[in-house]
């Protein structure tokens, strides 16, 4: 039951964090991907298979919240979870530079997948602009605190995340 409430709190936290990111996007022009950070958190702390499912569900959530083509983010985050999931357990996930590196890799992979989706599906838009270059560091910068907070929210009774 405690775990269930923790997931609810984590979900609410992500929705609110996405709202904050959307507001920041108005000022800065760049929107850090909160759901990508949550997927990376699952990759680092939960494992390969959960990362795929979590990425898919978070992608659906992102598709609901953002004016994108429905299913585009689901495919992107599921793929990110699947590809980066192979790296689970190979690094110390508590190290910030590991988290940042994973976020940069996830962001780059996400951009690649979105580009491929745009090529395959005409309704998926992909902006070839300076934002694409700035997105990975922005995701890393905003994603590390999100991962840290998620690790605190979803801390297990034995103290591990």
């Amino acid at each position: 039951m405690r775990s269930f409430f923790a997931y609810i709190v984590a979900m609410v936290f992500l929705v609110l964090a996405d709202a904050v990111a959307a507001r920041l996007a108005i000022v800065t022009g760049i929107k850090p991907d909160v759901f990508l950070a949550a997927t990376v958190f699952t990759v680092l702390y939960r494992g390969h298979a959960p990362a795929v499912l979590t990425g898919f569900l978070l992608g659906l959530c992102a598709d609901l919240l953002q004016p994108t083509v429905f299913g585009a983010n689901a495919l992107r985050l599921a793929t990110v979870g699947y590809v980066l999931g192979w790296l689970h357990g190979r690094f110390n996930e508590d190290m910030p530079h590991v988290q940042a590196g994973m976020l940069v890799a996830a962001s780059c992979l996400g951009i690649l997948i979105m580009g491929l989706e745009a090529l395959a599906v005409s309704s998926v838009s992909f902006g070839y602009s300076w934002r694409v270059a700035v997105m990975p560091p922005a995701d890393a910068l905003a994603g590390v605190p999100v991962i840290v907070l998620l690790a605190q929210i979803l801390r297990r009774p034995d103290g591990t995340s």
Partner: peptide, 10 residues
């Protein structure tokens, strides 16, 4: 499975 559902949704 997830990819199939996503493509279906797309």
């Amino acid at each position: 499975g997830c990819a199939s559902v996503s493509v279906g949704l797309l």
